[in-house]
Design a protein around this nucleic acid. Structure first.
Lengths: 117, 117
DNA sequence: ACTGTGTGCAACCATTAGGTTGCGCATTCG
DNA sequence: CGAATGCGCAACCTAATGGTTGCACACAGT
């Protein structure tokens, strides 16, 4: 199961997490990610653009952004290029989130322990 | 433990997750979030700006952005305004990530089951 | 009462981001 | 071969973003 399984022991990769957050900051990109998550066979830029109100080139740009964040892998198949989701960086982002939440929780616990005596 | 504890049963809040991703897309904002996670007492804009290479107003803008995303709560204390981390929206973002990862995993499993049998 | 410190508001600036159109090239299909 | 389809590249436009400076106002401490 290569999906999202954050492991508390590993220090969160700030750079990778930041790249993922930046990539997922755009609603269109989030839609593309969910669309790719539902198509295990992968999809083409034109195919994805067909179900969106924007042009193919805009989709291609978004896919390039997702590629730079490591969230997508592209394979040339004849004259068409299929994009497939790579969920591994999602784990880095999830790890960052849980790390911050955990830090907060421990700080809060420290504070309460301090107040109680 | 009010921190990050994603619950698979609940459908992920797309809007909240998107707001969190957009908020955390900026490295300065991520730094502010981690800094606030380490200070359970909260911090002021000027205090946070002191340990950053940018102006107080820039920090204030970032804090306002984090506030809009629900990641921070501000309380006026005399003439100074203290900002405190609110980690709850982080759970929405984490839930979104795990949901996408889980979707991908099941799609992949379906595909492999299809190929094998 | 006066001075200093912390905020808030506004104008302004440069860069990035999301999107479009147009064109040229390669590959598949009739 | 010729037509159509899918991509990639480049130029361009607009709006948003991250940052700055300047100023006015409120509250604290002496």
């Amino acid at each position: 199961m290569p999906g999202v399984r954050p492991h508390p022991g590993e220090p969160p990769d700030e750079a990778a997490a930041g790249a993922v957050f930046a990539a997922l900051a755009d609603p269109t990109r989030r839609h593309l990610v969910t669309a790719l998550a539902a198509r295990s066979g992968g999809a083409t830029a034109t195919g994805l653009a067909a179900e969106l109100p924007i042009s193919r080139q805009a989709v291609a740009k978004h896919l390039a952004t997702l590629d730079r964040a490591g969230l997508v892998s592209h394979t040339r198949h004849g004259r068409e290029q299929r994009f497939e989701l790579d969920p591994r960086p999602l784990a880095d982002a999830a790890a960052w989130l849980t790390a911050v939440g955990a830090e907060w929780d421990t700080r809060l616990a420290d504070l309460q322990r301090l107040l109680k005596g």
